[in-house]
Nucleic acid binder design. Structure first.
Lengths: 135, 135
DNA sequence: CATATATCCGACTAAAATTATCGTATATCT
DNA sequence: AGATATACGATAATTTTAGTCGGATATATG
């Protein structure tokens, strides 16, 4: 219960790997996936998502790969979760747009609000935790 | 991501329902499942687990059902999670017995410790949140 | 004591979410 | 031109969670 997505772990490993590669031009997905034992295709997709969200920058072609846009202490865990298109959602009804929920108990539910508060706390924790702290 | 099990929600609804039924002798699974729109068989199983863990007491036979052993302010969220045989486990490697994990990165993993700390915080939150606060 | 009611419990099935893979296109360096 | 590497949508496999089924046991009541 309350599992974190593997994609998030992989993203963190990748950022750590790139960071520790120092000032080299680029680090390729292949190098990271080989070194960290992460499925190539999956990691590739994760990297692409992080590019779109401005966490890393890509370089096509021979000797291409990725570089970090910021140092790990300026990248937040919540940012990575968001970049991967994930979100912390403890219950089906705790979506941002409450009209979307089709829960039969929606109107009278006594649980949503308190669980929402717990979720908020976890969100806050994620938004304040830097990748630096994690790697 | 970080979803809470439906079983936990159902357990909370059931406890609330029994509590609000006042001093009646017993409340049956059927009554709760009908009123709260919870699958009967599933809720039955949940109730049985809570009996085994001393959260509620069962009464067999006609007019049987369940009663609370404690008031909601003396039942903790973590207790329910435990009773249902669930646990908060953010990553595969964060099991209580670390020798069980077969993660290839186990020895050198830099993530486990910090994620473990986040998990500890959430566990603490669960262990200190009473059902009273939730319902 | 027979019957109806309700819990008990393990095994099984279904559904959903997550993880992983595949094929093809695009960009860039030499 | 050829090799290398990212981009991206679609699909497959796996895992986890949710829900179902069948038969057993216990108890109140007529």
């Amino acid at each position: 219960m309350l599992k974190i997505a593997k994609s998030v772990e992989y993203a963190l490993f990748a950022i750590k790997y790139i960071h520790e590669s120092g000032n080299r031009e680029c680090v390729s997905v292949k190098e990271i996936s080989d070194s960290m034992n992460i499925p190539y295709e999956l990691l590739a997709k994760i990297m692409q998502r992080m590019v779109k969200n401005g966490i890393i920058t890509s370089q096509h072609g021979t000797n291409g790969g990725y570089i970090l846009n910021n140092k790990p202490d300026a990248i937040f865990l919540g940012q990575i979760v968001g970049a991967l298109g994930l979100k912390i959602q403890m219950t089906d009804c705790l979506v941002h747009d409450p009209t979307v929920s089709d829960c039969a108990r929606f109107k009278t539910c006594c649980l949503r609000s308190p669980i929402s508060k717990i979720q908020d706390k976890i969100n806050l924790l994620f938004d304040h935790t830097t990748v630096q702290e994690l790697i």
